[in-house]
Deep mutational scan, measured.
Amino acid sequence: GLTEEQKQEIREAFDLFDTDGSGTIDAKELKVAMRALGFEPKKEEIKKMISEIDKDGSGTIDFEEFLTMMTA
């Protein structure tokens, strides 16, 4: 499992990506986040990433899903 410290770091990354503070990361926010990390993702790639992570089919990534992605 994760230490509380690791969870906190992932939470901070999540909050950075969640620019509108909605508690979820949408495609637009993910794209901005990827760019910040030096990637140039295409729209299809973003969609694919979200569909792989987005277990509940909401079209957005919540913290639990993000946590799973970061620790996979």
Rank of each mutant, 00 (worst) to 15 (best):
Gly57Thr: 05
Lys43Glu: 15
Asp26Asn: 08
Thr68Pro: 00
Phe17Val: 15
Met49Ile: 10
Leu37His: 03
Lys43Asn: 15
Asp62Met: 07
Met70Asp: 00
Glu44Ile: 05
Phe17Ile: 10
Glu12Cys: 14
Ile46Asn: 01
Thr60Ala: 08
Ile10His: 03
Pro41Arg: 05
Ala72His: 13
Gln6Lys: 13
Asp56Lys: 12
Lys55Gln: 09
Asp54His: 10
Ile46His: 04
Gly38Val: 00
Leu37Glu: 03
Phe17Thr: 04
Gln8Leu: 12
Asp62Ser: 15
Leu16Gly: 05
Thr3Glu: 01
Ile10Met: 12
Glu4Val: 09
Asp20Phe: 05
Ala72Asn: 10
Arg11Ala: 02
Phe66Arg: 01
Glu29Ser: 10
Arg35Cys: 15
Lys42Pro: 07
Ala36Glu: 08
Gly1Asn: 06
Glu40Met: 12
Lys48Ser: 06
Gly38Met: 03
Phe63Ser: 01
Leu2Ser: 02
Glu52Arg: 10
Phe63Thr: 00
Arg11Ser: 02
Glu64Asn: 10
Asp26Pro: 13
Gly1Thr: 13
Thr71Asn: 04
Gly57Pro: 05
Thr19Phe: 12
Phe66Pro: 00
Glu9Lys: 14
Met34Trp: 10
Phe63Leu: 04
Phe14His: 00
Ser51Asn: 09
Asp20Ala: 05
Glu12Thr: 10
Met69Asp: 00
Leu37Asn: 03
Asp62Gly: 08
Glu9Trp: 12
Met34Ser: 01
Ala33Tyr: 05
Glu44Val: 04
Asp26Thr: 13
Leu30Val: 09
Leu2Ala: 03
Ala33Cys: 12
Gly21Trp: 05
Ser22Lys: 06
Arg35Ile: 13
Ile50Met: 13
Thr68Glu: 09
Gln8Glu: 07
Leu16Val: 05
Ile53Ala: 09
Ile46Ser: 02
Ser58Phe: 07
Leu30Pro: 00
Gly59Arg: 12
Lys7Tyr: 12
Gly23Tyr: 02
Leu16Phe: 09
Leu16Asp: 04
Ile50Ser: 02
Ala13Trp: 15
Phe66Tyr: 02
Ile10Asn: 01
Ala36Cys: 15
Leu37Ala: 07
Ser51His: 08
Lys48Val: 10
Thr68Phe: 10
Asp18Arg: 05
Thr60Gly: 05
Thr68Ile: 10
Gly1Val: 12
Lys31Cys: 15
Asp15Lys: 10
Phe14Pro: 00
Ile46Gln: 03
Phe17Ala: 15
Val32His: 15
Met34Arg: 00
Leu67Ala: 03
Ala33Ser: 02
Phe17Pro: 00
Ala27Phe: 14
Phe66Met: 01
Glu9Cys: 15
Ala13Glu: 02
Ile10Phe: 12
Leu16Pro: 00
Glu65Ala: 14
Asp15Ile: 08
Ala33Arg: 02
Lys7Ile: 11
Gln8Trp: 12
Ala72Tyr: 13
Ile50Gln: 03
Ala33Val: 14
Gly57Met: 08
Glu4Ile: 08
Phe14Ala: 00
Gly23Leu: 02
Thr68His: 12
Met69Arg: 03
Gly23Phe: 02
Ala33Asn: 01
Ala36Val: 13
Lys48Trp: 11
Lys43Leu: 14
Gly57Leu: 06
Leu67Arg: 01
Ala33Gly: 04
Lys28Arg: 09
Glu12Tyr: 12
Ile53Leu: 14
Leu16Asn: 06
Glu64Lys: 06
Pro41Ser: 06
Thr19Lys: 12
Ile46Arg: 01
Glu52Cys: 15
Gln8Cys: 13
Leu16Lys: 13
Glu64Gly: 07
Ile61Tyr: 04
Ala33Ile: 15
Thr71Tyr: 09
Gly1Lys: 09
Ala36Tyr: 15
Thr3Asn: 04
Glu64Met: 07
Gln8Phe: 06
Gly59Met: 11
Glu29Lys: 05
Met69Asn: 01
Phe14Arg: 00
Asp56Tyr: 08
Phe63Val: 03
Ala72Trp: 13
Asp54Trp: 08
Leu16Arg: 11
Gln6Trp: 13
Gly21Gln: 07
Ile10Tyr: 10
Leu67Ile: 07
Met69Glu: 01
Thr68Trp: 14
Phe66Asp: 00
Gly23Glu: 02
Thr60Gln: 10
Gly1Pro: 11
Glu44Pro: 05
Lys28Gly: 05
Arg35Gln: 15
Lys47Asp: 15
Glu4Ala: 13
Arg11Leu: 04
Asp54Val: 14
Thr3Leu: 03
Glu29Gln: 14
Leu67His: 01
Gly21Thr: 03
Gln8Ser: 08
Glu5Tyr: 10
Thr71Arg: 03
Met49Arg: 03
Asp18Gln: 04
Lys47Phe: 10
Glu4Trp: 10
Glu52Gln: 12
Phe39Pro: 01
Pro41Glu: 05
Thr71Asp: 04
Lys28Asp: 08
Asp56Ile: 10
Gly59Ser: 09
Ile46Met: 08
Val32Tyr: 15
Glu9Tyr: 11
Glu44His: 07
Phe17Gln: 03
Leu67Asp: 00
Met69Ala: 05
Gln8Met: 08
Asp15Arg: 12
Ser22Tyr: 02
Asp54Tyr: 10
Ile10Lys: 01
Glu12Gln: 09
Ser51Tyr: 05
Arg35Gly: 10
Asp26Leu: 08
Thr24Val: 06
Ala72Met: 12
Thr24Arg: 12
Phe66Thr: 00
Glu65Gly: 14
Gly57Asp: 07
Gln6Arg: 15
Leu67Thr: 02
Met49Cys: 11
Thr19Ala: 07
Glu29Gly: 13
Asp20Glu: 05
Ser22Arg: 08
Ala13Leu: 13
Arg11Asp: 01
Glu29Asp: 14
Ile46Trp: 13
Lys55Arg: 09
Glu9His: 09
Met70Trp: 05
Thr71Leu: 14
Glu5Gln: 12
Ala33Asp: 00
Phe39Ala: 02
Glu5Met: 09
Leu30Phe: 06
Thr3Pro: 04
Glu5Gly: 09
Glu12Asp: 11
Thr68Leu: 14
Glu45Arg: 04
Thr71Met: 11
Glu12His: 12
Phe39Trp: 14
Lys42Arg: 08
Thr71Gln: 10
Glu40Val: 13
Ile53Lys: 07
Ser58Val: 08
Leu2Lys: 04
Ile61Gln: 00
Lys28Val: 05
Glu40Gly: 05
Thr3Gly: 07
Leu30Thr: 01
Asp18Ser: 03
Ala72Cys: 14
Gly1Leu: 09
Met49Thr: 02
Phe14Tyr: 02
Lys47His: 07
Ile61Asn: 00
Met69Gly: 01
Lys43Arg: 11
Glu65Gln: 15
Ile53Thr: 04
Glu4His: 07
Thr19Val: 08
Arg35Tyr: 10
Asp62Lys: 13
Lys7Phe: 12
Ile10Ala: 06
Met70Thr: 02
Ile50Asp: 02
Thr24Lys: 07
Lys55Ser: 09
Glu12Met: 06
Asp26Ser: 14
Asp26Gly: 10
Lys28Ile: 06
Leu67Val: 05
Ser51Lys: 05
Lys31Asp: 15
Glu40Ile: 11
Ile53Gly: 06
Thr19Cys: 13
Thr68Val: 14
Lys42Asn: 14
Thr71Lys: 07
Leu2Gln: 03
Lys55Tyr: 04
Ala36Arg: 06
Met49Leu: 11
Lys43Pro: 15
Met34Phe: 15
Lys31Val: 15
Ala13Met: 12
Glu45Cys: 15
Lys43Asp: 15
Lys7Val: 13
Gly21His: 12
Thr19Asn: 07
Thr19Ile: 13
Leu30Ser: 00
Asp56Leu: 13
Leu67Gln: 01
Leu37Phe: 05
Asp15Val: 06
Phe14Glu: 00
Leu16Ala: 11
Phe39Gln: 03
Gly1Ala: 08
Gln6Gly: 02
Phe14Gly: 00
Glu12Phe: 11
Thr3Ala: 04
Asp26Trp: 07
Lys7Cys: 11
Asp20Pro: 01
Asp15Glu: 07
Ser51Trp: 09
Glu64Ala: 11
Ser51Val: 05
Ile50Arg: 01
Ala13Gly: 03
Glu52His: 10
Ser22Ala: 04
Phe39Arg: 04
Ala33Glu: 00
Leu30Met: 06
Thr60Glu: 07
